[in-house]
């Protein structure tokens, strides 16, 4: 029986006008892995994630989520955390949780409320009154309290303090659904390395490397962070 991949790219390319963002990407991600999508700024990480979410259309090639093109059905099984503050300031935390509960049948409302309470936040608080760190945490809670098959987290630890980073990584590990895949896009490799199963190196729109983190450490005798610096040094 042919293996079903949760995310599959076949000769995927994306151009913004004449500028290539992704060039001929071929990729197959299996279920049950935490994958680091690692690359410098402008390498194509966010473009790949947006294509997987159906927020962009490919220039050529295809991208498949669980064997389907991005659309209504794939959005039901993909949980996305963008790299920006996407919550409406006028919403309360409770309204944001209700919104997620109403549109995603796999959303765990009780778990989300419990996690918000543990942060010491009031559900009636408006999003705009939260600090940046707390808004990031609430956004993460909304993404991770889903029983999705694929979690796409775009730069979840960028721009936050080390304590918040630790909270974010712990939340990811504690809450992702069993046998699902988590893709974490980041350029802060040293912070996420310990939780990664596989790593993808991407630069200038091309995938340079896709290997197991453990295998890298065993065969290259260096950390993933050190290998990344080696591969992409000026």
């Amino acid at each position: 029986m042919e293996q079903q991949y949760i995310l599959e790219c076949n000769n995927l390319s994306k151009l913004y006008g004449q500028k290539p963002a992704l060039i001929d990407v071929n990729l197959k991600l299996c279920l049950g892995r935490i994958v680091g999508l690692l690359g410098p700024n402008g390498s194509g990480k966010t473009t790949l994630i947006k294509l997987a979410n159906g927020l962009l259309t490919p220039t050529s090639g295809e991208i498949l989520i669980n064997g389907m093109k991005p659309g209504v059905e794939t959005k039901k099984i993909v949980s996305f955390l963008p790299d920006c503050d996407f919550l409406a300031g006028w919403m309360t935390i409770e309204r944001a949780i209700e919104y997620s509960r109403d549109f995603f049948s796999d959303f765990r409302t009780d778990a989300a409320k419990e996690m918000v309470a543990r942060l010491g936040l009031d559900l009636k608080q408006k999003i705009r009154t939260l600090s940046k760190g707390n808004r990031e945490k609430v956004s993460l809670i909304l993404a991770m309290c889903r029983e999705a098959k694929l979690y796409l987290l775009d730069e979840p630890i960028a721009g936050v303090d080390p304590a918040t980073r630790e909270y974010i990584l712990e939340t990811i590990l504690a809450n992702y659904a069993e046998n699902s895949t988590v893709v974490i896009s980041t350029h802060l490799i040293a912070d996420v390395e310990t939780i990664l199963n596989d790593v993808l190196f991407i630069q200038n729109g091309r995938i340079d490397l896709y290997r197991s983190a453990e295998e890298i450490r065993e065969t290259e005798h260096m950390s993933v962070d050190a290998l990344f610096r080696e591969v992409y040094k000026w």
Binding site: V72, F80, P82, F86
Partner: peptide, 17 residues
């Protein structure tokens, strides 16, 4: 705001056409 700013990430990832 809900369709073309950052709030659009919430709007366009819900499973509707």
């Amino acid at each position: 705001r809900s369709m073309f700013t950052h709030e659009g990430y919430f709007t366009h990832t819900i499973p509707v056409e």
